[in-house]
Structure formats: C-alpha cells, structure tokens
Nucleic acid binder design. Structure first.
Lengths: 259, 259
DNA sequence: CAGATAACTATCAAGTTATTTCAATTTATG
DNA sequence: CATAAATTGAAATAACTTGATAGTTATCTG
C-alpha cells in the first residue's frame, strides 16, 4: 500500500469512529504503531485531528458544514436524479446561478469540467468548482451563514444587481399550494435577487418537501419557470402541484435512458 | 515509440487508475524507471499529477488548489511562526481582513474559534472558518482565480468600498527596496482595495521573498504599517529592509516563550 | 503516594525510492 | 554524411520510509 493511501485510511478511520487507538489503527491497517504515530502526527499538523494519549480524536476539518453533512444522505438518489435532469437542460457556454443546498451541490458535481460559467453563493459548491480550468466561477460575497456555508444579505443582493444569468437553479426547504418557503429571512431576500437576475428560474425539490411550509415565504408559483422533482411524488401531491400552474419535470422518467 | 506518445500513455495510465507505481508504469510501457520518473516529473510540473514516494496520483481537475498545495510545505515552520506573531496582535472583537495565501491560511487556523470578525477573498480560508460559531465571516465575492481560489476583480473591489476593518493581513509574492510585488495584475488591484479599507496594514512574508520582484507592482513601503517576517532573514537583507523605513516584527524571537 | 503499566520520544538499521552522473543511443541539423 | 543536441538506461550515491528498540514520561491503581 502506498503511503498516501494509508494516511487517508488513518484519517477516514479516525473520522468515522470519532476516536481510535493506536493499536486499533495499527491492526486495522496492518502497519507498525510507529507508522501510525507518524501519520497521526501528520494529520495533527494539518489540523484534522487532535492527538491524545493512546490515540487520536477527530476534529471537524473546517471545510464541512454540519447542516449539509447531516442531510447529505437523505434522498440522495432522488436528489441525484433531480440534479441530472436539471443539468441535462444546461448547454455549454451557458451562465448558471446555483443556490446553496444539497441538490444544487449534486448539480455542481455534474457540471464539473463542463465549459460553462457558474455563479454561486454557496461555499461548498465554490470549493468544488474552484480549481476547474473549464468552468468559470463567480462567487457571490456577503455574510456567511455558518450552518450551510452560503453567502447572504445586502452585499450578496447588491452584487447580483450587475449580473445576468441564463438560469437560476433554486433550492427551497418547503413548498405548498401558496408558493415556496425557506427557513431564513435573509436567505429568501437573497434568493429573490437570484430570481431577478435570471432569464429562467428552475426549482429543484424532492418529493418530501411538497406540502411543507417553512418560516419565510419566498414567492408565488408564477415566479417559477420549472419545477424539477423526483418520481416518488404521490399523485395527490402531483395534482396539487398541477393546480398551481407550475410546469413540472419529473426526474428519472426519461433521463435514465439517456445515460 | 515516440516520446510524446509515451508521456501521454503515462498520464493516461495514472489518470485511469488514479494511482500507479513506477514499477507498474515501467513494466506496462516497457521503458526504464528513469524514463518514467522523468515523465512523471514533467506532468507534475504541468500540474496534472502529484508525485508520491514510489509513484504518482492523479489530481482531479476540480478538487483542490494546486498552486497552494505545492507551496504548502515550503517554509511551513517559518510561516507558522509568522502567523503566530501576527495573530498575537489581534484582540477579541477585532475585525480582520485576510488576503489569500499559505501564510494567511495558517493565520486563519490560529484564529479558529476566536471571537472576531473575519473578511476574506480566499476560498480555502472561508472554508476553514465557515463552520465556526464564534467567528463571524464575511466573504468577498468576485471572479475566482482557479490557481489559488481567491476572489478578484471589480466585484471584489467594489464590495470593499463599504467595508472597514481594523487590520488587513496581506500576502505578497516578492518584495524589494522599491516596494511590494505580486504575480497578478487583478490581484494587486484587489489588494490595494484591501489596504484602503483598513486602519492598519500588516504584511506577512517569509525570508525567501525578500529581494524577489514579481510581475505586478503593488505599492511602496510607506503604505505598509508593519512587516512580520521569520528570523531566518539574512543580515544583509535585514539592513536592506531597515533602509526602506519599514517597521519589522521578527517572528519567533519572543513568541516562542508565549506558548 | 509509590509502583506498575502503558505510551511517548529519539534513534538506528534495513529496505526502498530519488537524485545525480555518465555513457550509449537516437534524433535533429547543417 | 558528419556533427551537435537530446533522450534514454544504468549505476552509484543520497534521501526517505518503515519497523524495532531503548530510555523517558505520563497515566492508572491499590
């Protein structure tokens, strides 16, 4: 096994268990305790874990956002399908604005290496796309909301006054027949600006969000050009959505064949 | 086989497997390990691979910031000392602007958990501090320069017009008796704005940067309030710096006792 | 608090990988 | 075709990684 790989395994083991002893790690990876010590010391220097007597404990590596990590596996397959469907409508050379959220993060993964311009207020998405030579990235600045790592507030809104994009991929925490909702007042203010600077507003939402309102009202259905949703959507909810006049794209109905 | 073709095969093999050892490659392509080493070194220079002991691993286009990774170990101890000295001058409740760079990234690590307000145009620094509840974070938006993951350009500059901070911690790529230099024209433009919105401008630089100019002239010495530098600085260079009228803080002279 | 035990640090030897150097070969150039 | 330049492979030397050991320090237990 190569050193790099072993180091990664050490970090993975410690981070998944939260804590691990030297003996555990040495046994698991089949190397001497000396080597484990050196690897732990390495990660300690990097700031990814903290040494204790006999082992090491994981400290958040800073680049992760708890609110995102928790949700990251919920409806992952559905979110992937939604992202695939939405990204399928984006052409090379387009300019796309990506809102923060796990579904838009999946969309960003699919856009990696594509020759497009991306505008985003999401730190995780920016970190993902920043190194790419093909993708141009414009980051929206502002006050960073620590839970999810998105930029919010007046600075963010003002920066968008001079921007124009083909599409905005929007993320919300709930939607009812009245319209769309999100959990944070500053966030909906920012998202309204995102909608204003786009030719087309595309909402990405999985079926669990339908019928669930949230603290802050974002906008009515007429403001949305397209809703991309997964096919676990129940018929009752589907007809409710139909009544709002929203254009629907059910992810997974056709996209699966296009792979 | 032509050299060009062989090199391409080396890159292809490494990129498809993700990792390959020298022996693997030498056997596969039927050339000596010396040649493989030279090819790997070539791609490493190009930024497509990262060397490890015994082999090489492919670097995904988007995952990280190559320009940062390469430099990350060079003068690490000196940079830590410089960061420690600079951060020692920051009080709780202060507002600090952090420029991009490895030394300022180290400073950010030391600020983690401190109750201060941080403004930055650096994506790595933002990712590090974003999750912290104690530290308020304001991100400067703009066009992201892929090599180092910093926001640059008119958007960034304009956003700073409405900001005011106690300190700016600045990073440069070189400094001579004439003044400070950096490698990118947009970057120096952005850094000038960073200097304008601060009460105090603190320059972080290690000894290797002294006497080295770079493409773009940033400013004269009179614009800098304090230069924090490590103690490996040679006497000849030290006296040169003294002649510029710059206030010097040699890191490691006193800080070591304060641990 | 003392003794026992576990863990840490520093160091070394063995094995592996890098670097440097040089001669042979191939390729380019007049 | 002859010469210069570049490339390649091999060999020697240097540097690094790893596992083991001995002495030291920290933690636990009665």
């Amino acid at each position: 096994m190569i050193a790099e790989e072993r180091r990664q395994r050490v970090l993975d083991l410690v981070s998944t268990k939260g804590f691990a002893t030297l003996a555990d790690l040495a046994l698991e990876i089949q190397v001497s305790e000396s080597t484990v010590r050196r690897d732990l010391e390495f990660w300690h220097q990097q700031g990814n874990l903290r040494r204790t007597h006999g082992g090491a404990i994981f400290v958040g590596d800073g680049s992760s956002f708890p609110a995102l990590e928790e949700r990251i596996d919920a409806q992952l397959e559905e979110k992937r399908a939604i992202a695939r469907a939405a990204v399928g409508r984006i052409c090379d050379g387009d300019t796309v604005l990506l809102d923060g959220g796990t579904t838009t993060l999946e969309a960003a993964r699919l856009l990696l290496g594509r020759s497009i311009q991306v505008v985003t207020n999401s730190l995780p998405i920016a970190a993902l796309l920043a190194g790419s030579r093909e993708t141009d990235l414009v980051l929206l600045g502002g006050y960073i909301y620590p839970k999810t790592g998105v930029a919010l507030g007046p600075f963010t809104v003002r920066m968008m006054q001079d921007l124009h994009v083909h599409q905005t991929l929007l993320s919300v925490s709930g939607l009812t027949e009245r319209g769309l909702f999100n959990s944070n007042l500053l966030l909906v203010e920012t998202e309204r600006a995102m909608m204003r600077c786009a030719d087309e507003v595309v909402l990405l939402a999985d079926h669990t969000k339908v019928g669930r309102p949230a603290l802050a009202f974002l906008c009515e259905w007429s403001e949305i050009d397209l809703l991309v949703i997964d096919r676990k959507l129940e018929d009752r909810k589907k007809s409710m959505l139909a009544q709002t006049g929203a254009r629907l794209l059910i992810a997974g109905d056709l996209e699966e064949f296009g792979r």
